[in-house]
């Protein structure tokens, strides 16, 4: 890996990381706000930090992917870098940020749980939470969670890639994204280790985006 490539990855990761910190901060505030409301209305905490983060993070990463195309690619070429460096930087940064978000979410979840235990507020957990004990996911669950987030990032990136070329392609990538999301979240596939499907589609999108961006015309 060239020094420019690693510098580009660091720069891109820093950018995504700053967006992610904003997102996690806002999510944390919303999480606290909702639990305060449910405490006063239902007298219990009905929602754990980690279970709520899954759907929110997938949407966040979809948006990060959507914002990863034209502006960044143009900026890369303007600073004397290549499409190859752009592609690798966005991909590796997406992976790094995904891992970072998963770890950060688990740590924050444990921290919040710890605070609740220390203060005795864990008594306020609803029965559903106490029965499921979903504070610390298993390794397979964490990996599956990370793979799903990364897939949504790639779906977002592919949609903006499609629209960058032509609106028809953009629309097709939306349809493809919806179809893949339906397949990977279908109960039939969930029962036979969905992570394999998710990983397959991740590979599929990486292949598509790699091929698509390597000779892509960039409007100067």
């Amino acid at each position: 890996m060239t020094s420019k490539q690693s510098l580009a990855i660091r720069t891109q990761t820093k950018e995504y990381a700053s967006w992610s910190l904003w997102y996690l901060s806002i999510y944390l505030l919303i999480y606290i706000g909702i639990n305060v409301v449910t405490y006063f209305t239902q007298g219990e905490i009905t929602w754990t930090f980690i279970e709520g983060s899954f759907s929110a993070t997938t949407v966040f990463m979809l948006i990060v992917g959507l914002l990863s195309m034209g502006g960044f690619l143009n900026h890369y070429l303007s600073t004397g870098l290549t499409r190859r460096i752009y592609f690798r930087s966005v991909l590796f940064s997406g992976i790094l940020v995904t891992i970072g978000i998963v770890i950060f979410t688990i740590l924050l979840s444990l921290l919040i749980h710890g605070v609740l235990l220390a203060t005795g507020w864990d008594q306020l957990y609803s029965e559903r939470i106490i029965d499921n004990q979903s504070m610390l996911p298993s390794i397979v669950e964490a990996l599956s969670y990370a793979a799903s987030i990364l897939l949504f990032f790639l779906i977002g990136w592919s949609i903006s890639f499609g629209f960058y070329k032509h609106w028809v392609q953009g629309a097709l990538y939306i349809a493809l994204g919806v179809a893949i999301t339906m397949i990977t979240s279908h109960p039939l596939f969930e029962s036979i280790l969905p992570i394999y499907f998710t990983l397959f589609f991740i590979g599929f999108y990486v292949f598509l985006l790699h091929r698509g961006t390597r000779t892509l015309d960039v409007r100067p």
């Binding site: 060239t2 420019k4 070429l77 004397g80 870098l81 290549t82 499409r83 190859r84 460096i85 390597r214 000779t215 015309d217 960039v218 409007r219 100067p220």
Partner: peptide, 27 residues
């Protein structure tokens, strides 16, 4: 500057093709 690729013909900087050439585009 390699923002777009020529449909035919070659573009070189110091005898190196410029398209997707890290060394050429950084100059």
């Amino acid at each position: 500057t390699a923002f777009q690729k020529a449909s035919s013909g070659t573009v070189t900087l110091n005898n190196e093709n410029t398209f997707e050439n890290e060394h050429a585009v950084e100059q």
